[in-house]
């Protein structure tokens, strides 16, 4: 299996505070790779460095062998890397269709600066949008305002928007956060389905979900990798147990 996303000695400092220290991560193609850890372990910072939301202090991020460490966040979707947000972060006063359409439009650089004709809503745009709508089972909500969707539907759309760029690597920040028990199976189905065409890096709090869908897991604590392996291996690692139980070593 080839490595599709890799970090080398990735370090992120905020002033004196070191949020991530020398993180080495290798994500194999076609897998779902979970990044877990207790609160304050530096998961979100790590994720933001991967997505380019914040600049890294030192180290490298490689996407399919290409160094994207300093690539601007807005250029990453085109490079094949797309992210979702933990707190639902959509254009809430726009329709589901418009949310997806905007993500599609972003893929043609320069297109967004066109001001002399109306935005395209048919043809290839509509096809691309409808495809994602079908995958996320939101086809019936095409013209609904996002703010009127249920929380579960918003979480799914959150993933859907990230999907519009046909990413080869999808970064998902706690996709089930705030979801009810009843909605989670739908997300699991969606993730398993997506795995066929792209690699997924998943930050999760819900250890059950990680065990169920992930092929590999990296555990962070205090900004460092403390354990790595299959979900089974990791869950039997003493260090991980201690980290989660909050005991001092």
């Amino acid at each position: 299996m080839s490595t599709v996303l890799q970090t080398k000695l990735l370090t992120k400092r905020y002033g004196d505070f070191v949020a991530n220290t020398d993180i080495n991560l290798s994500v194999a193609k076609g897998t779902i790779h979970g990044v877990i850890g207790p609160n304050g372990a530096g998961k979100t910072t790590f994720f933001n460095c991967l997505a380019g939301t914040v600049p890294t202090t030192s180290g490298q991020v490689l996407l399919e062998g290409r160094d994207i460490t300093t690539l601007a966040q807005h250029k990453r979707p085109l490079a094949g890397l797309s992210r979702s947000f933990q707190v639902t972060s959509l254009f809430s006063d726009l329709s589901v269709f418009e949310n997806l359409r905007l993500a599609h439009q972003a893929l043609s650089p320069g297109k967004g600066f066109v001001f002399w004709h109306a935005a395209h809503e048919t043809g290839s745009t509509a096809e691309a949008v409808d495809m994602v709508l079908a995958r996320t089972s939101l086809i019936g909500e095409r013209d609904t305002l996002v703010s009127e969707l249920s929380h579960g539907q918003q979480r799914v759309l959150e993933v859907g928007v990230a999907l519009m760029s046909k990413p080869r690597v999808l970064l998902l920040d706690e996709p089930t956060s705030g979801m009810g028990i009843d909605d989670i199976p739908q997300m699991i189905t969606l993730l398993s389905d997506l795995k066929k065409e792209c690699t997924i890096v998943l930050i999760e709090h819900n250890v059950g979900l990680v065990t169920e869908v992930c092929d590999a897991v990296t555990v962070l604590q205090g900004g460092k990798v403390i354990s790595e392996g299959t979900p089974h291996e990791v869950s039997n690692d003493e260090k991980v147990k201690i980290a989660y139980l909050g005991e001092d070593l």
Partner: peptide, 17 residues
């Protein structure tokens, strides 16, 4: 439409490209 998107959610607009 991009301007509207920026108004509603700058972080997301950046994230989708």
């Amino acid at each position: 439409t991009v301007l509207t998107a920026i108004k509603q959610n700058e972080a997301r607009a950046e994230a989708i490209g």
